[in-house]
């Protein structure tokens, strides 16, 4: 097992390099030079030239890439000019907040999505199945940012059940209760789409498995139907559900951008959008590479979980 994990980690290196190259190339496509963007159009040519030299922009593309890569490996992602602080500090702080939001949503959508799919499949064409199918369709069709706004309107403004925005109260303790009350609405809004996608997939994966011969064997043994569904069938269906959970984690992380804007959540997505509007290139570059790298690592964890679950791959 340790060998397998090591092998997966090593195979991630080219992917990570590829990601850094893609980000670097996209950023290098920016028309005009960043120094002008930073200093504004009234800057003197001397100042622009000096800043370009300071940023290393007078060197060739390949050389610049390797300098950037080398710096990143030592934890130096450069400096955000708009915030005037190291990119890595800002990204780490913001990523924490995103992790709280996206992590909660991911757990929520995995549990609810799989459960809804299983119930839907085991009552195929029944009332529960039809109801779930309809809610799921609604869920995957509603834009999460619109849903978030409606949630604020109903649950925060009208019913006053939750705070309108932010991660912490402005005055008062930063304790778990405060976090949960701030987290509930954004986490729910973010989870809805992924829950729908997972429920759909879990339903069809269960339908696929329930037709298999080993399910008939379990029934012939006298296993209770509840256990046939939730133990025998779900365990086998998880093999095809787990990879999709990995993909959905990417969608949750993506969707977090909208939710962070709507709910003023101090996460990495909102940071990126702000940085793009301010043309804070190094912050965008560093943020994108950092989040993408985390996502690659997460997918390795999903693969490992997959092998732990399936003895046929394990051996």
């Amino acid at each position: 097992m340790a060998g397998y994990i090591l092998k997966r980690l090593i195979s991630a290196i080219p992917v990570l390099l590829g990601i850094s190259i893609i980000v670097f190339v996209i950023m290098a496509l920016i028309p005009g030079d960043p120094a002008t963007a930073i200093l504004g159009s009234y800057a003197t040519p001397e100042n622009v030239e000096r800043l370009n030299r300071d940023l290393g922009l007078d060197k060739g593309m390949v050389q610049r890439y390797f300098i950037w890569l080398g710096n990143m490996l030592t934890g130096d992602f450069g400096r955000s000019f708009a915030l005037n602080r190291p990119v890595i500090d800002e990204v780490l702080e913001r990523f924490n907040a995103t992790l709280v939001l996206a992590g909660t949503s991911f757990i929520l959508c995995s549990l609810v999505g799989v459960a809804a799919g299983v119930v839907s499949a085991s009552r195929q064409y029944g009332l529960a199945d039809k109801a779930i199918t309809f809610v799921v369709l609604l869920g995957i069709s509603i834009p999460s940012f619109f849903l978030g706004m409606m949630m604020i309107l109903i649950f925060a403004v009208n019913l006053r059940m939750f705070p309108v925005s932010g991660m912490w109260p402005i005055y008062g303790d930063r304790d778990l209760a405060a976090l949960i009350s701030h987290l509930t609405l954004p986490a729910l809004a973010l989870a809805v789409v992924a829950t729908g996608v997972i429920a759909r997939l879990a339903r069809s994966a269960m339908l696929e498995v329930l037709r298999q011969d080993f399910i008939r064997t379990a029934r012939a043994k006298g296993v209770h139907e509840r256990s046939v569904i939730w133990r025998h069938a779900l365990r086998a269906a998880m093999v095809s559900i787990i990879p999709v959970l990995g993909i959905q984690a990417g969608f949750v992380l993506s969707g977090a951008v909208y939710i962070e804007i709507v709910f003023q959540w101090p996460g990495v997505g909102r940071m990126l959008v702000d940085a793009i509007l301010k043309r804070d290139i190094l912050l965008v570059q560093g943020g994108v590479v950092f989040v993408a790298a985390c996502y690659v690592m997460f997918n390795i964890a999903v693969d490992v979980a997959q092998t732990l679950l399936d003895p046929r791959i394990r051996s």
Partner: peptide, 25 residues
């Protein structure tokens, strides 16, 4: 396909944001 795999390793919106960042809104 290696290139495609690299692109798929991104959460999709990060890539879209990076592209918009480069091209401008």
């Amino acid at each position: 396909m290696r290139g495609v795999d690299m692109l798929m390793a991104f959460p999709y919106i990060l890539l879209a944001l990076a592209i918009v960042a480069a091209l401008g809104p």
